[in-house]
Amino acid sequence: MRVYFDEQGRALPDRPHRPGPLPPFGAELAEHLPGWTVQAGPLNPGRDLAELRSQTWGWGRLPWDTVSAPHIALALTGPDGERLLTVKTGIDAPIVLGAAKPDDLPDYDPRAVQVPALVALPSDVPPATVAAEETSLGPHCLQAVWEARTSAATHAVEALRRLGSAYAPAPGSPWGRGEIGSFDSPEDRNRAAWPHFETLIDQGPYLVAGIRVAATIEDRLDPAVGPDLRRLYVTETALDRLRELRDGWRDAAACIIGPPPKLTRYGSARRTCATKRHGPPAPNSRTARSLR
């Protein structure tokens, strides 16, 4: 669950909203962007404007806040997954184009990512010109997302290598405890390593798919990179196995911890009624395997 705050740090109410109809400018812009999705952003003061602010990527200081809304805000999604924002802060204000932050963007080193700069156009520019700028900006946004995913995955691999050589004493052994770079137990080391595994699980499939798309016949025949490209299936198999382990652990944890507090009474009532009608439920095979 996301919680949004205003400029004074007060939590904004989570009110449901629906995307509004496309303004005439947005409808005409969509006609010049075949294959793209153009959607008007809700501009109600409060949560809607805070969410719009959170979607910007590399915009710097924004010319609107949670009270004063821009005149138009359009979210654009390209055929290759490009995500852009087109904002017009006032009737006669310039039209600003910029990158939108992907929902699953990982933590990355800002020095390794070059988010494309904002593009400002005159307020009276025709939609065809805006569409041309959007299609030109899209590939740069995809490159920035690739750089962010690569940065996060590289950091995760380097951290796992360091943790793999970190010392963790055997149970009951006093040697090495408290030393710099060591852990008090193998369990502590595993807990420190797990977030990096999750980064690889989440970002690895994107990187493998991107490599496959970008690889050419010449690359596959190149003796320097060809063997690595042909061994991508090994990486995919390892990622699938890690994902299975994570899903199994989440199933087991849900079985042990139970449902959220608000659903406990409702779930207990349903289980009681079901038991009276049909007898005890059969165990979930996937959960049972995970627990074993």
Rank of each mutant, 00 (worst) to 15 (best):
G279Q: 09
T272C: 00
R265Q: 12
E134Y: 00
A170E: 13
W249Y: 13
D109P: 02
A252T: 08
I201G: 02
G279E: 06
R289Y: 03
L137Q: 09
L291Y: 10
T275M: 11
Y4R: 12
Q114E: 07
P102M: 05
T135F: 01
R189F: 13
I72N: 00
T237P: 00
T235I: 14
N284T: 09
V145D: 05
A192H: 09
V113S: 03
A69S: 05
D92L: 13
P227G: 06
H155L: 10
E51K: 04
I211P: 01
R231C: 02
L76R: 06
A214P: 04
T77F: 02
E187C: 04
T237V: 05
D219H: 15
A148V: 07
A209Q: 15
P79H: 08
L200D: 06
P16S: 03
F5K: 01
K276P: 00
A238Y: 14
R246H: 14
R277F: 08
V145Q: 11
T86N: 00
L163S: 01
P24D: 12
V225K: 07
D80K: 12
P122Q: 09
I257N: 08
L200P: 10
S136E: 05
E28T: 03
P280D: 01
T264I: 14
A100M: 06
L105N: 02
R231Y: 11
E82K: 00
A50F: 12
E179P: 01
V130F: 03
A159K: 15
Q39H: 04
S182T: 15
I211L: 15
L229K: 11
P79R: 12
A166E: 10
R289K: 13
H17M: 04
E236T: 14
A166G: 06
P171H: 12
V145H: 10
P79T: 05
A69I: 00
E82D: 05
G267Y: 12
Q114N: 11
K276R: 11
A288E: 14
P23N: 02
L49T: 02
A40S: 14
R270G: 01
H155T: 13
D188T: 08
P106A: 12
L105V: 05
A288Q: 13
T235W: 11
T89S: 07
T150G: 05
P139I: 05
L52R: 03
L242C: 15
E31P: 00
W146Y: 09
Y233E: 05
I217F: 13
V208S: 08
S290H: 11
E28Q: 10
R271I: 07
A50L: 10
G46D: 06
L163F: 14
T264D: 06
V208E: 08
A274S: 14
E147M: 13
S185A: 15
G90F: 02
P63C: 05
D6H: 06
G258R: 08
R111T: 04
M1K: 10
R189G: 08
P34G: 05
R162F: 04
P195T: 07
E147L: 14
P171Y: 09
